[in-house]
Design a protein around this nucleic acid. Structure first.
Length: 293
DNA sequence: CACTTGACCTGTCCGC
DNA sequence: TGCGGACAGGTCAAGT
């Protein structure tokens, strides 16, 4: 599902594809997919030009001319796919078996640009949204204002460790998934980072040795960077701004590998449920009950 | 406060 | 083959 590397991949694609384009029309096929305080968001959006595409955690931040910003959250199954006027979609992507023609049954919003390009917001489960806010409301947004640090920007071990000490009794996986602790980690990269650090995901923070926390901090950064390089993880629905799948799951060590051999020690990868999520781990590389020392 | 559970949705897969 | 139910997991709200 879209986590930091997936959203960053989409951001980079959109920055190349839609900055400078002027919105000609906006079709809202599912009203709940477009949130806005304004009575007539279409009136604000039509005629606006895309100025910039940024990201904070798992949120896309699209700046428009005219003093407004579009906040886009993909949640579980959201896709933002651009189709230029010149290419019919679905022709040239051997990688992609997820989408053929757009719009399809999961299309919720269609944004047409002058010149003929279209941006499709697809979202099978309707959890994601586009939210139109005035620029001066962005920083006070209920979600954005609570986010923790960006793991790939000035994210020191000292800061990580200090914040962890406030969560001593929580299990480490729940903490990693908490967006107010750290922005952008989801189920895939939480499991992968904990494997890389050799920590059982159900371990309480207070029971993890400092040397392992140092490894974890490093693993989070390295895994997110690698995942961005590979275009993110396509577990089910995820595709980038051109409709292409990501390649990270080809190198994932534990996620979706239950029943297979650990690539490090060949033990059988286990799947359990922790913090309300399917959780993958190697019982040998990530032993339970590591003592503090 | 910290953690768990249910809700929000829909498509897929599994067992009967 | 059909059908009910579990499952997928990001976030919020309510409950323990």
């Amino acid at each position: 599902m879209p986590e930091l590397p997936e959203v960053e991949t989409v951001r980079r694609g959109l920055a190349d594809l839609i900055v400078g384009l002027k919105i000609k029309d906006l079709e809202v096929l599912n009203p709940k997919s477009l949130r806005a305080a304004a009575k007539n968001p279409q009136k604000i959006l039509i005629g606006a030009t895309v100025q910039d595409v940024q990201r904070r955690g798992k949120m896309l931040i699209i700046s428009l001319s005219g003093g407004y910003t579009l906040l886009v959250h993909l949640r579980m199954t959201g896709q933002v796919v651009f189709v230029s006027s010149k290419k019919r979609y679905g022709g040239g992507h051997p990688n992609n078996s997820l989408l053929n023609e757009l719009p399809d049954s999961s299309t919720r919003i269609i944004c047409s640009f002058q010149g003929g390009g279209k941006l499709f917001f697809n979202d099978q489960r309707k959890f994601g949204y586009w939210q139109l806010v005035a620029n001066d409301q962005v920083s006070s947004d209920a979600f954005l204002s609570k986010l923790g640090p960006e793991p790939l920007e000035k994210f020191s071990f000292e800061q990580f460790n200090k914040n962890l000490q406030k969560r001593k009794k929580s299990i480490i996986k729940a903490v990693l998934l908490d967006q107010t602790f750290l922005a952008g980690i989801g189920n895939i990269y939480a499991d992968e980072a904990l494997f890389a650090a050799g920590i059982y995901p159900g371990t309480k923070v207070q029971d993890i040795r400092k040397i392992q926390l140092i490894k974890l901090h490093q693993a989070i950064i390295e895994i997110l960077q690698t995942a961005i390089k590979l275009g993110g993880s396509s577990d089910r629905n995820y595709v980038d701004a051109q409709g292409l799948r990501g390649g990270y799951l080809r190198v994932a060590k534990v996620f979706r590998r239950e029943g297979k051999n650990c690539l490090k020690c060949s033990a059988i990868i286990q799947k359990t449920r922790l913090a309300g999520r399917g959780t993958h781990f190697c019982p040998v590389c990530q032993p339970k009950g590591v003592k503090k020392q």
